[in-house]
Design a protein around this nucleic acid. Structure first.
Length: 852
RNA sequence: GGGCGCAUAGCUCAGUUGGUUAGAGCGCUGCCUUCACACGGCAGAGGUCAGGGGUUCGAAUCCCUUUGCGCCCA
């Protein structure tokens, strides 16, 4: 037997085996496999500029469990991983790390040295740098960040194929992203349009509906009267939380069924302070129970205003600019003197000024009434979103098209969700979309939109006839590359061309991970082997973004769903059932936990979290996992210590004892349950069943037969026990291998030359044993142990006589275990008598001890 | 406001198509220095299955309802 350490330990085994797997290529994808032999997995590329937390460990472990199971089932597992490095999170991290900010008007500076590399002082003013310099710093930092992530994932034991690695900013990703987009454009699935857009005034970029969230914020209703045109004695009172937008008012609106306002529909009123005349309109989105029941429509205060403006075909009277300030120029029809009081102010400052004016002039009715109301924010933003008109690129997603929406809902039904109820999140989201998917961002670090526009004679872009590159030129950067038929000196010249200055939102690229990871159109045959993927793994919080957008892109490009199964992981909650977050200071570093409890122990905790269920962070569970892994090492050592066993002889010829066959029948049943669980992506169930039989095996079966295995009853009886022990151990090690990859590999290596992770998933030994045969003997053993516990003697204490009373139906089973029971309980004589009751009972006579 | 999920031992959770006395681990209590494991082992105590109603021979499980918690969407 190979070297079994005297004292097996979990400490330090991770690096040793991770290196070995790397050397052996244990998890390398077999590119010669045909599609039916492949199990392909689409995993989330983590945002490398973010923090590493237990949420990553949790959900990535779930994916790995399934990957390892499928690999042991003989599948060629395609399990790539990528980093999501493009986008705003990286920009922010670069700003905070180097103390710089991107200013595209700055010239490029070769060999630029940033003022800091990490922790600039708080009072430091960010140094403006050119876009190319800024992007260089992005590239520099993500390389460092990615190494940290890779180290963690290797330590976690993810069985990913590191050769299939990608990043969302790398050349292949840019090519795939641009190619997919250009095909969307060609088919009319992507288009650009000048339209009202959700806008973050701090990041100065457009934001998609999926990135928007409601936050409860204090506000106040201001009751303001509008004088009716032609009837100075009559007023209409409105309640508004945004009096600063009075200048942008284009209409009032009430519900068509509201009898209070029906007489007024079509009449005009005068906006206080600013004097423009606006009409009273009817629309069913007006809420009669909100405020006074009639609202002002401004261009634009919120998304409902956009709907009203569009459907009621109202004027445009924009007053908020892209920097969030009130525009300098007075809109048409608005009193310039009143407007001058708010021009240049931020909305909150403007509100104070307007309320002051209203109060001074005695217009405001009563005091403002404070309320809490939901306000729309960019999920990363700090000030409320505004709505500005701007030209942006969109991909159709059913938000403006019922047929497409229904198609995408139908696609959702082609995916099996785990757990199933997560499909509701998807459908809820698709049904609630109110516009197409905005993919352009006015930012810097990302995949450039591969489009130029011709400039007309006056130098204005002709947006209707964009210039697109041939696919074989991709990826391109329109700010440096030149469209076919033009020369570089025509850039920005009348009659020349201009590059689209924007980049894609991160989701526009990460929605293509199946294409990117699978080398779509890279002509190496990989894509056809892996697509559509077998499995998408992700957290349930990004169903509306990543899951939905990936289905949308696949639907447009291929007319199929990108994967057959979507496995959703839950969140990690802290022990108080709150979502863990850095701001609450309750985030623990995964690496420390790996060191403290062993990686396998942490994986055990993750594996016990059921699919889709939010799970409490629990170091107690990690302790249990450590105990399990430790026990596996020790019981393996013990089972393998009984001398050589002829593993070539037929199992049925060697394992003859009905007790041994009964145990193996129990293991068979567990193998079936674990297999059923894994086939349904329910790794937690597989773990629970496996763990249960494992502890039973250690505590009961091993204790019962170890004397026989020591040859107390002769060589044949010993051979049956030894072979059964090894058979069971082999199955148990393999059943646990997905969960405890390091400990099982360690223990497996003591008696095999190849990896347990390349071994086949266990199958039933099928010796025809009765799984219940052993139970009566174990029950009797438990009663003997109890008697010794109650007598407060050692479990090794001798028992002079054991009288078992049992129903006659159990006598044969008890006879089968009689000799093992006598040895395990140190029992001199055992009698088995019929019992009147159904239950088994024991009368234990403990032998007198020789007091020394 | 619409939708989804959850409620079982002090804690974390299993409990599959309804079927004997509702299970596990942790924690707690007692015992055992036992030759694989003291990072261990053996045993014990601990439950009105959130409340109410219904279906059924039989309900933690199915139906209705109330309450509480969480999430998604508007």
């Amino acid at each position: 037997m190979a070297n079994i350490p005297d004292r097996p330990t979990l400490d330090g085994i991770e690096d040793r085996w991770a290196d070995q797997w790397d050397t052996d290529g244990t998890y390398r994808f077999d590119t010669s496999a045909v599609r039916s032999e492949v199990f392909s997995i689409d995993t989330p590329p983590p945002t490398v500029s973010g923090s590493l937390h237990m949420g990553h460990v949790f959900s990535y472990t779930h994916t790995d469990l399934v990957a390892r199971y499928q690999r042991m089932q003989g599948k060629a597992v395609f399990y790539p991983i990528g980093w999501d490095d493009n986008g705003l999170p990286t920009e922010r991290r670069v700003q905070n790390f180097y103390g710089v900010r991107c200013d595209p008007s700055q010239p490029y500076e070769a060999g630029f040295e940033p003022p800091f590399r990490g922790d600039p002082p708080k009072k430091h003013q960010a140094v403006p740098v050119s876009r190319p310099n800024f992007l260089e710093l992005c590239d520099e930092l993500i390389e460092v960040d990615e190494q940290v992530f890779e180290a963690l994932y290797r330590r976690l034991g993810l069985s990913v194929d590191w050769e299939q690695h990608y990043a969302t900013i790398d050349e292949r990703s840019r090519r795939a992203s641009q190619r997919a987009f250009l095909r969307n454009v060609e088919r009319g699935e992507a288009y650009s349009q000048e339209a009202p857009t959700l806008w973050d005034i701090d990041f100065r970029t457009a934001v998609a509906q999926a990135e928007m969230e409601d936050r409860e914020r204090p506000g106040a209703y201001h009751k303001i009267p509008f004088q009716v045109v032609g009837d100075p004695a009559s007023t209409i009172e409105i309640d508004t939380t945004r009096p600063e937008l009075l200048a942008a008012c284009v209409a009032l609106v009430a519900h068509p069924d509201d009898e209070r306002f029906q007489p007024h529909f079509g009449t005009k009123v005068i906006v206080p302070l600013y004097g423009q005349e606006v009409e009273i309109k009817a629309h069913e989105l007006a809420q009669p129970d909100k405020g006074t029941g009639i609202a002002m429509i401004c261009t634009f205060g919120d998304t409902t205003d956009v709907t009203w403006w569009r459907e009621l075909q109202l004027d445009l009277r924009v007053i908020i600019g892209r920097d969030g300030r009130i525009l300098a120029d007075t809109p048409s029809g608005v009193d310039p003197d009143a407007y001058a009081m708010i021009a240049g102010k931020y909305p909150n400052q403007a509100q104070r000024a307007v309320v002051e004016q209203l109060t001074e002039q005695g217009i405001l009715i009563g005091e403002p009434r404070p309320i809490e109301h939901p306000v729309k924010f960019y999920e990363r933003g700090e000030r409320p979103l505004e709505i500005v008109a701007s030209r942006q690129w969109y991909i159709r997603n059913g938000g403006r098209d019922t047929d497409l929406r229904n198609d995408l809902i139908a696609r959702g039904h082609e995916v099996t969700f785990h757990p199933d109820h997560m499909r509701h999140r998807y459908e809820n989201w698709v049904e609630g979309l109110n516009g197409d998917w905005l993919i352009s961002r006015q930012r810097f670090f990302g995949v450039p939109i591969p489009i130029w526009y011709p400039l007309d004679a006056s130098g204005e872009p002709v947006y209707d006839t964009p210039l697109v590159p041939a696919e074989d030129r991709l990826p391109i950067d329109p700010s440096t590359d030149v469209p076919d038929g033009y020369t570089a000196d025509q850039r920005d010249q009348p009659g020349g061309f201009v590059g689209d200055p924007d980049i894609f939102d991160t989701w526009a690229t990460s929605s293509l991970t199946p294409q990117i990871a699978g080398h779509w159109e890279e002509d190496d045959g990989l894509f056809e082997k892996v697509f559509p993927y077998d499995m998408r793994a992700q957290g349930h919080d990004i169903i509306r973004t990543w899951l939905f957008s990936t289905i949308t892109r696949s639907h447009h490009e291929f007319g199929v769903v990108p994967w057959n199964h979507a496995a959703l992981s839950g969140w990690i909650l802290d022990p108080d059932r709150k979502k863990m977050s850095k701001s609450k200071g309750n985030v623990v570093t995964p690496m420390d936990l790996f060191d403290q409890y062993s990686t396998d122990a942490v994986r055990y905790w993750a594996g016990s979290g059921r699919p889709g269920v939010d799970t409490a962070y629990s170091e107690e569970q990690m302790k249990v996992g450590r105990k399990l892994a430790n026990k596996l090492l020790n019981v393996s050592k013990f089972v393998l210590s009984f001398g050589d066993v002829d593993m070539d002889a037929a199992l049925a010829d060697t394992v003859t004892d009905p007790i041994d066959r009964s145990m193996l029948a129990k293991v068979d049943a567990t193998i079936a349950e674990a297999t059923t669980g894994f086939d349904a992506f329910d790794y937690a169930r597989a773990l629970e069943r496996t763990e249960s039989i494992f502890w039973w095996f250690c505590d009961n079966y091993v204790e019962l037969v170890k004397s026989r295995a020591y040859e107390s009853l002769g060589p044949d009886a010993a051979a049956s026990a030894r072979r059964a022990l090894r058979e069971a151990l082999s199955s148990l090690q393999r059943l646990l291998a997905p969960f405890l990859p390091f400990a099982t590999e360690e223990a497996w290596s003591w008696w095999h030359d190849t990896s347990v992770h390349a071994a086949s998933w266990p199958t039933a030994s099928d010796l025809g044993g009765d799984p219940t045969t052993i139970d009566a003997t174990i029950d009797a053993l438990t009663l003997v142990r109890r008697a010794k516990s109650e007598a407060k003697v050692s479990q090794r204490a001798e028992v002079a006589a054991l009288a078992i009373s049992a129903p006659e139906s159990l006598h044969a089973a008890l006879e089968a275990g009689r000799a093992d029971l006598a040895a395990a309980g140190s029992i001199e004589t055992i009698t088995i008598d019929p019992a009147s009751a159904d239950a088994l009972s024991c009368d234990v006579t403990i032998a007198p001890t020789d007091d020394v």
